[in-house]
Design a protein around this nucleic acid. Structure first.
Lengths: 347, 347
DNA sequence: GGTTAGCACTCAACCGGGTAGAGTGCTAAC
DNA sequence: GTTAGCACTCTACCCGGTTGAGTGCTAACC
């Protein structure tokens, strides 16, 4: 089952070639390479073995071979070596971050643009997740006699808002007092600490306005966490540059899968527990991404993992290059975020 | 130059047919229609005239004719009659709005989804513009020793935020006092009234903290208005269902033009002075939309025009249907918004 | 036993000719 | 002014032949 040295080298050569050209690789083109002096017939035998082992596939009898997903998996796990980014590429990446950003949102968007521009794949960024973040300010703003807006500001500079119905007879003054109370109680609390027992505990002190208080806390729980299911996307059409998506229907399927950002959100969310992740072809659950590979990385603020970002492309992907880019991007983004937030995040 | 009755009817028949089938229309297929009893030869003569006048084009000598942009323009201006929506269609549209929405953002998104689902074209919605809207609340929230977040809430329930640098030595208490002051001064003011002279006038009372005040007002002016250049897009891939975009490169061009939402924002912004607008082919400035038509409508809150929405599709578009849908949508959206904001908008 | 040259075979892609069919333009008759 | 008839044009499609890349197998070689 283990592949010997030579099979490994041949497989690598095939994968490298295929990643570059998208065309099935024949035995002769391998044997002609300077660093191989084996005849094409021998390569053919080896390739036949590799096919039997499930690493290669043949589109049809008289075509060359293409790597299987299993081959990519092996390649990623064992064969591939991290590519070095050229100084030029590093500079290109840094250039995206040097425009002074004064909002996290802009930074996130910039990251997505940079990623898709540089990799030429489709890029996605999950903005900093709020769970481990602290509340800086809570405010109830009266909009009309029946409606108020609950605004919440976190220490990372994110704001969220929820529209609420206010009970009959509640005045702007009441709401203001209420805001003060909420503010005093919740300030510097973490969003994921704001659990139900707290609600009950705090609710008891509220007396007559308890029902309203309850609805405020529910709104906080429901909306603020769920509502954040946004991701930043860039370069969705990059996929159209790759011949595997020259078929209209495939392209349509891919773009449709991406447009509803839900699936991507799920993937990024899941991936944000891992430093890096690579999922190849069938390993992706969404039906329409089963011919793609997804590579993601996680970024941090201080030590806290805050979100993740990644790219989607054909399984025939330049994995090593992408990984290097993600790695450098991870660094750049974490730095930029830290700079933006002036590092007042204490563990 | 004026077209006689018969030419008009023939042109309409050709356009109707072409909109439906996307295939060049021949003389025989027109003469066979029940409501025409003219021979194909006569139709041919008429078609030849129409071509000379610039209303028809021939892809090649032995093909039928297709309508020119000039023909669509004539069609839209004079021939077309407003289609009636079936009760079923109305119900379908209303269904999108019946899920109770408690945020404008959700409503905007829902509108875009509904539009693209029902028309099967690409839909875009410009969210309510803030210019004529009133400020309900302003708050400065300290994030770190050097940074604060300026949060602004409008009476339509929109929030905007800007990150600011705070001068050395300013305390949370100072910021709070500052917020109170801003709040008292700006509450119920309209965003577009908040002009420079006000800034100067108010700034004079500020004494030592005048510089900071200036930066706050500048931030308000710059960011809050410019930053809102977001539009909601839906059904971007719908265009791929139309044969005129079966060519990959065209499709790519279209999708790329749409991805950078700037152009669309400009178009919608411009269109939001008109109740309805239809631009056909070359009439669109963006190079890559010169083979498309764009139809937009404006929606209101109370009497105030607040934004616009529309669809993009091939020039061969079902104009009458689209217009009817937009019209009904305009009503539904304006109603939904009014309901959401409880009509406390006073002229 | 692994390696290699040689050869027959396979299959997609391309090319050219031939045909069908839709549609036109023109002319002559009504 | 309208129409029938006819020659003409042009695309789309099918078909058969050819090319070329690549394989699998076999027999010989080291």
């Amino acid at each position: 089952m283990e592949l010997d040295q030579r099979k490994m080298r041949i497989l690598q050569a095939i994968i490298d070639d295929y990643i570059l050209t998208a065309a099935p690789v024949g035995s002769r083109s391998i044997s002609k390479r300077a660093d191989f002096n084996i005849s094409s017939a021998t390569i053919r035998n080896e390739m036949s073995d590799l096919e039997e082992l499930g690493y290669l596939e043949q589109p049809h009898t008289s075509a060359g071979r293409i790597p299987s997903n299993k081959a990519y998996r092996l390649y990623v796990n064992q064969i591939m070596q991290r590519a070095q980014l050229s100084e030029q590429e590093r500079r290109a990446i840094r250039a995206y971050f040097c425009a002074r950003m004064d909002q996290v949102e802009g930074l996130v968007r910039q990251t997505a643009t940079a990623l898709s521009d540089i990799t030429r794949y489709t890029a996605m960024v999950l903005p900093p997740q709020l769970n481990t973040v602290r509340i800086k300010h809570v405010q109830l703003v009266q909009l009309s006699s029946e409606r108020a807006l609950l605004v919440l500001v976190t220490d990372t500079g994110f704001i969220r808002d929820v529209m609420l119905r206010v009970p009959e007879g509640m005045t702007a003054y009441d709401l203001d007092r209420f805001s003060k109370y909420l503010n005093d109680s919740l300030r510097d609390m973490r969003l994921n600490q704001m659990a139900v027992d707290e609600v009950v505990h705090m609710g008891e002190e509220m007396g007559s306005q308890r029902a309203f208080f309850q609805s405020v806390m529910e709104a906080l729980e429901h909306h603020i966490q769920a509502n954040a299911q946004k991701i930043e996307l860039s370069g969705a059409t990059n996929i159209l540059n790759y011949p595997e998506y020259s078929d209209m229907n495939k392209a349509k399927g891919f773009l449709a899968a991406i447009e509803g950002k839900d699936t991507l959100y799920q993937m990024l969310k899941k991936a944000s527990t891992l430093e890096f992740s690579i999922t190849i072809g069938e390993e992706n659950e969404p039906e329409q991404l089963k011919e793609c590979s997804v590579v993601t990385a996680t970024y941090r603020i201080g030590n806290e993992p805050m979100g993740s970002f990644g790219i989607i492309g054909p399984t025939r992907m330049h994995y090593s290059r992408v990984l290097s880019i993600l790695e450098y991007m991870q660094l750049s983004l974490s730095e930029a975020l830290a700079g933006l937030l002036e590092q007042d995040q204490h563990e």
